[in-house]
Design a protein around this nucleic acid. Structure first.
Lengths: 115, 115
DNA sequence: GAACTACATCGACAGGCGTCGAAGTAGTCA
DNA sequence: TGACTACTTCGACGCCTGTCGATGTAGTTC
């Protein structure tokens, strides 16, 4: 086991995992981590996520995403849902618009897994 | 002939990419990064990679991988090929055995993308 | 309420992926 | 040379994924 356990809120199912260099993680953890990497394993989603992440603390309106990637509205909605369910972004509907925000802790948790 | 041929290009196509928080990366970079994350998007491959990574600088014999994951030998070979082609591990055949080694620079490049 | 807007869901399609048994290939050893 | 070993490739199967047009739903404005 890793002696250098991260002092991160243990709520995150990834954050509590040992890095990939440690002997192994269990099946459950591998499933969760793999699912999160799967959310990043599409170039369209990567660009959408980069757009949201580049706003930092600020929110990003879903209405702007059509200018980021050349895909139909249902397809973009589909991708944002995958990013949301992976815990990489938050989603809030206000009026007619939906606003997204990056979850930096989730990215950091992945960085820990990789290192 | 191709003994120690690394799938890692001289100039790592990921290492030169801006992090996900920067405004955006181009389509080409997004494709390469997404393909690398795709290699990590399977729990079996994650466990195989973790096993190789846990050896640090040392090599890991392919003959040991059957004890790491409960899959057939062709399936394990298939997964190792994907990790190799993603540049995450090197492969060297010596005699009857194949030896794998982690490519830490590749993991580090991904960490930079996430940060 | 009616018309409109922004986004989500549905249904369908093509292509990709994980898996295995069978067959192929390359190296070892007697 | 021939038997053996370790791994790769092939062929097939079912499942999953990205994509879009059509449709559904929630909120706004008049």
């Amino acid at each position: 086991m890793a002696t250098k356990t991260a002092a991160v809120p243990v709520v995150d199912p990834i954050a509590c995992c040992a890095p990939v260099r440690s002997p192994r993680f269990n099946d459950e953890q591998a499933e969760v981590i793999a699912a999160t990497f799967a959310a990043l394993a599409d170039p369209v989603r990567l660009r959408l996520l980069a757009h949201v992440a580049s706003a930092g603390d600020e929110e990003v309106c879903a209405c702007d995403l059509g200018a980021v990637v050349d895909r139909s509205q249902p397809t973009i909605s589909h991708h944002m849902k995958i990013l949301y369910e992976a815990g990489l972004i938050t989603r809030e509907k206000r009026g007619l618009w939906v606003w997204y925000r990056i979850v930096p802790e989730r990215l950091e948790a992945l960085r820990v897994v990789l290192g």
